[in-house]
Structure formats: structure tokens, C-alpha cells
């Protein structure tokens, strides 16, 4: 009996996750060695903080995206929400609204956008790709209209403190990222809501017959998508202390890349949110390391593209073997 338990606890980390972690560590080691060879520093405490800081926006948005993708959907509107949150939040701040209230308001805006997305996907039966493709355009347009396409700047320094403040030398953004991930990992693994989300992605019919309110839960997933996109938007606004209506453009693809590198299947139902963080960090590490090594920008995109495909290729090793 004891022996059995041992093997069980060992196999808690499945092969796919293990490959991901090994990959992340290998990329890390390689950068450390390469940067060392070129006389630059990669593996320093400051740079580690740097990488997490730089990945924070994508990592946070990717939480929501993971949940949406786990239900078998997709949310293309997250990038445009980032831009919207920047401009809307910026204008509100400029109008003199207190910072905390601004944060509250834009988060609610994000949830409302997610709610609308979710409503059309689950109750309206419109494919998620189409709903969110549409809302991406709508939100981007709205953002442009809000301030006639101009950026907003000149914010009080307390805005920058939202993510740049330090607690015992640790940038608070890092604490946020880990905290949000810890909460959502618990929700996904340890609550009925999380199980239901997995079940919907795995087989919506079976979930429905098992008494899961599939439509409501599916809608809720998009609310999460909007929620975390707006939190990401606040992070970016605070990090730059500058709101650009075009900010966040293309983020949806980076975020989806982080999610799939982390091993969540685009068909839904499988994968772990914790690995999404690893996926985001791999992307952040690649961008940072390649820039430190002064690799020309288009080689960077080639390498990141290869990484995405290799990651999913490794992820599918088990399926290939089964054939």
C-alpha cells in the first residue's frame, strides 16, 4: 500500500508539465551561459525581478484567457480591453477621481465587457472567436472615441506606485502576479466552480447532464477574461504612467501564446493554470534574454515563433506515442 502511494505522489507532476519545466529551466540556463560568454549579466536578482515585471501584464491577462480557453472558447478582446482601461482610467484620473475608485470602475468595466462577450457566446450561441473578434473592434473604436485617439499622460506619481512600489525590496507587481495565480489555481483545482469549468471544456453535454449550469458558468469564464484583462490594463497604465489608445494591440496573441506554451489545449478541458504562468515567464525570459544578447528584432520573433510550436509539439508527445 505504501509503495502505491509513493508512485502516486510522484506522478502528480505529469509528463507534459515536466517537459515544460525542463524547457523553462534549459532556456534559463542557456541564457545565463550565453550572456556570461558575451560579458553581460542575465542571472542577477535585478534581472529576475525585471523579467517577472515585464511579463506581469501578459501573465495576469493570461489567467483570464486560460479560464476561457479551458471552457473551449477564446477571447480575442483582451488586448483591446487593455487599451480601453488605459484611456478610460487615464481620463478618470485626470478628472480628479481618486485612484482606488478609478481602479474599481475600470475593473467593473472589464467585467461588463466580459459579461457581454459571455452572454453572446453562451446564450447567444455565437462562436466565441466571432463575438470577441467583434468586441475587440468595438472596444478599440470606443477607446479611440473616448479621447479622439489621443494619448493621456501627466499622471500623479501615486499611479506608478500601484505596481512599482516595493515591499521588502520585492516589487509589488511580482507579489500581485503570484497572489493572483495562487488564488486562481486554488479556485480551478479546489472549488466546484473550477471543476465545472474543466468539465464544460471537456464535454459540455455531459456536464449539463451532471447538473452543471453550463451556460452561466461559460458566461462567467468570459467575465474572468474581462476581469483579468482590465487588471492587466491597470498594470500597464501604472507601469508606463501613460495611456496610449493603441496600447495592448496584439496582446491577445501574446497571451494565447503564453497559454498554449503552458500546455492548455485550445479545445478546452485540459491543462493547468499554474503552467500558464510558466508559459508567460518563458515568453518574458525569451524577450528579455534575446534583447540583452542584442539579437535583431526579427530573429527574436522567429525564435519566439519556434518556441510556441516546439512547446505544443512536446506537449503532444504523448498523443503521438499513443498512435
Amino acid at each position: 500500500m505504501e509503495k502505491v502511494n509513493k508512485t502516486e505522489s510522484f506522478s502528480k507532476i505529469d509528463i507534459q508539465s515536466l517537459a515544460l519545466y525542463i524547457g523553462a529551466v534549459l532556456i534559463f540556463i542557456t541564457f545565463t551561459i550565453l550572456c556570461g560568454a558575451y560579458g553581460k549579466s542575465f542571472f542577477t536578482l535585478d534581472n529576475m525581478k525585471n523579467i517577472i515585471n515585464q511579463s506581469a501584464v501578459i501573465a495576469v491577462i493570461a489567467i483570464g484567457q486560460s479560464i476561457v480557453i479551458l471552457t473551449g472558447g477564446i477571447d480575442l478582446s483582451v488586448g483591446s480591453i487593455v487599451g480601453f482601461v488605459g484611456i478610460a482610467g487615464g481620463l478618470l484620473l485626470k478628472s480628479g477621481m481618486p485612484l482606488m475608485m478609478v481602479i474599481g470602475v475600470v475593473i467593473i468595466c472589464g467585467c461588463i465587457i466580459g459579461f457581454a462577450n459571455g452572454y453572446f457566446v453562451s446564450f447567444g450561441k455565437v462562436p466565441a472567436f466571432i463575438v470577441t473578434l467583434g468586441s475587440m473592434q468595438i472596444i478599440h473604436g470606443l477607446t479611440m472615441v473616448l479621447n479622439t485617439g489621443r494619448p493621456v499622460s501627466g499622471f500623479p506619481s501615486e499611479l506608478r506606485m500601484v505596481v512599482s512600489a516595493k515591499i521588502m525590496g520585492i516589487p509589488i507587481s511580482i507579489i500581485y502576479v503570484f497572489l493572483l495565480y495562487a488564488i486562481m489555481i486554488t479556485v480551478m483545482k479546489k472549488t466546484t466552480l473550477g471543476r465545472w469549468i474543466y468539465a464544460i471544456g471537456g464535454n459540455a453535454n455531459a456536464a449539463k447532464l451532471a447538473g452543471v449550469k453550463t451556460k452561466q458558468i461559460e458566461m462567467l469564464a468570459y467575465v474572468f477574461g474581462g476581469l483579468f484583462a482590465s487588471i492587466g490594463g491597470i498594470f500597464l497604465l501604472s507601469r508606463l504612467s501613460y495611456a496610449d489608445p493603441n496600447a495592448g494591440m496584439g496582446y491577445e496573441l501574446d497571451v494565447i501564446a503564453a497559454v498554449v506554451i503552458g500546455g492548455i489545449a485550445l479545445s478546452g478541458g485540459k491543462g493547468s493554470i499554474g503552467n500558464t504562468l510558466v508559459g508567460s515567464l518563458i515568453l518574458g525570459m525569451l524577450k528579455c534574454g534575446l534583447q540583452i544578447l542584442n539579437v535583431p528584432v526579427y530573429f527574436q520573433t522567429i525564435i519566439i515563433g519556434i518556441t510556441i510550436i516546439v512547446a505544443v509539439y512536446l506537449d503532444k508527445a504523448k498523443e503521438r506515442k499513443a498512435e
Binding site: 535585478d46 525585471n50 501584464v57 496600447a247 494591440m249 544578447l293 542584442n294 535583431p296
Partner: peptide
């Protein structure tokens, strides 16, 4: 050392580039 955003010029990408350049020394 030349670094630029891959597609759109964005403040976020430039901040990241500058942070990494400083790290690179």
C-alpha cells in the same frame, strides 16, 4: 546595439527594451 518593437511602436515595448539594455550594460 539596435532594438525596436517588432510591429507597432509602443511605449510598453520601448520601456521593456530600455530596461533590458540597462541590464545588458
Amino acid at each position: 546595439e539596435v532594438q525596436a518593437a517588432d510591429q507597432h511602436a509602443s511605449a510598453a515595448a520601448q520601456l521593456t527594451i530600455i530596461e533590458n539594455m540597462i541590464t545588458a550594460g
